[in-house]
Design a protein around this nucleic acid. Structure first.
Length: 238
DNA sequence: CCAGACGTTGTT
DNA sequence: GTCTGG
DNA sequence: CCAGACGTTGTT
DNA sequence: GTCTGG
């Protein structure tokens, strides 16, 4: 799944990959984020085609139009791609409110024998920018001040060979022609479903990182620094 | 008809 | 809002 | 996803 | 244990 991620890029890269018609100067500065958590405002790319894209903030955790509390969104941070066309809260957004959520990497917590959890940073082998498949929604009942709330969710699919040892689910990542295909308003449900496959095995690397990343408020470069793991074996060997 | 859910993950 | 369960 | 709270009354 | 907040 995807319950925490990072975004370490600059406006030029973002524009080059996902917003070709946008002037780099019109993109706000992008301070690097190392620990992005649910309920926070996250950047997403919307717009039907490459000529009409925009970059907007959404609350992470989809809040359906009927919800009268933002807390509903905390349990809607992901949507299973296999069932997204049928689920009541997701099928509307799936049909007409798809988006791209840029990410440089995401985190999984690998369960260990002793009951502990080791955080793993999963990122491209070249550390390049990724695009997660997302859906967005608008709600006019949930905010305290009555202002409309725009929120989003990240689609998931089965893990690939690289990530399966860590966790059995992963975000849907779009690449190449899949990016425009995902954003095409005329795409059929079947075509969209076809895009929701695990990323090619060779693209991703899994790197153990410090449990400092556990704390959502710890937004620091330390979150992605690789660490050595003291395994059962090397504890006895040394 | 009305009431109640509407979601995913991991764990038991 | 819309669907499922009773 | 993980961390941290989880409650009310009366008094200051 | 379960929910809320980040």
């Amino acid at each position: 799944m995807c319950g925490r991620f990072n975004l370490r890029t600059n406006p030029a890269t973002l524009v080059q990959l996902f917003l070709p018609q946008m002037d780099v100067g019109d993109v706000p500065p992008l301070p690097p984020r190392y620990n992005i958590a649910p309920t926070q405002q996250i950047l997403a790319v919307t717009g039907d085609d490459a000529e009409h894209r925009s970059l907007r903030f959404f609350r992470w955790g989809l809040v359906p139009p009927w919800a009268d509390s933002l807390s509903i969104g905390a349990r809607m941070i992901n949507a299973r791609s296999e069932t997204v066309a049928e689920k009541r809260s997701f099928r509307g957004p799936f049909a007409s409110r798809r988006c791209l959520i840029p990410a440089s990497g995401y985190y999984e917590w690998q369960a260990s024998d002793n009951g502990g959890k080791q955080p793993i940073h999963i990122h491209r082998d070249d550390d390049g920018l990724l695009a997660m498949a997302g859906l967005w929604e608008e709600n006019r009942k949930a905010s305290a001040d009555g202002a409309p709330v725009f929120s989003c969710t990240v689609l998931t699919t089965s893990a690939n060979e690289k990530t399966a040892p860590v966790h059995d689910r992963m975000p849907v990542f779009l690449e190449g022609a899949g990016v425009d295909a995902w954003m095409d308003p005329d795409a059929s449900s079947e075509q969209l479903q076809d895009l929701c496959r695990p990323l090619a095995d060779e693209r991703l690397e899994c790197t153990p990182v410090s449990p400092k990343v556990n704390r959502a408020g710890y937004d620091d470069p330390q979150c992605i620094v690789p660490i050595k793991i003291a395994t059962q074996r090397n504890l006895f060997d040394t």
